Computed example of a mutant assay.
Amino acid sequence: MMNSLKRKIVFNAKNLIGWKTKRKIIVISVDDYGNVRLDSPKAREALDNEGLKIYSRFDAFDTLETRADLEALYETLTSVKDCNGRHAVFTPFALPCNINFEKMAETGYEEYYYELLPETFQKLSALQPKAYEGAWKLLQEGIEKGLMVPQFHGREHLNLKILKEKLASKDHNVLTALKNRSYTSISTSGYKTISPMAAFEFWEFEENSKFSDLISEGLEAFEKVYGYRAEHFNPPGGREHPVIHKSLKENGIKFLDTYLLKQEHLGKGEYKRVFNYTGKKNHLGQLYLVRNVVFEPTENRGLDWVSYTLKQIEAAFRWNRPAIISSHRVNFCGHIDEENRSKGLSVLKQLLTEITERWPDVEFMAANQLGALIEKGE
Rank of each mutant, 00 (worst) to 15 (best):
M2C: 06
S4H: 13
K8Y: 11
K8N: 09
I9S: 05
F11S: 03
N15Y: 11
N15R: 07
V27K: 06
V30P: 05
V30R: 11
R37E: 12
S40R: 06
K42C: 14
K42W: 06
E50K: 09
G51N: 01
Y55E: 12
D62E: 15
L70A: 02
E75D: 14
E75L: 11
S79I: 08
F93Y: 13
N98Q: 01
Y113E: 00
F121L: 06
F121S: 09
Q122Y: 01
L124S: 04
L124M: 07
Q128I: 00
E144P: 00
H157M: 09
K179F: 03
S182M: 04
S182A: 00
I186F: 14
G190F: 03
K192G: 09
T193E: 03
M197L: 14
A198K: 01
A199F: 04
A199T: 03
F200M: 09
W203E: 13
N208I: 15
N208F: 06
D213T: 06
L214V: 14
F222E: 11
F222S: 03
R229N: 15
V243N: 11
N251W: 15
T258I: 04
L266A: 08
Y271I: 10
R273M: 06
V274W: 04
K281H: 15
H283S: 14
V290H: 10
V294P: 05
F295E: 10
E296F: 14
T298Q: 05
D304P: 15
V306S: 01
S307C: 05
R318I: 04
W319M: 07
I336N: 03
L345R: 01
R358N: 11
K376M: 12
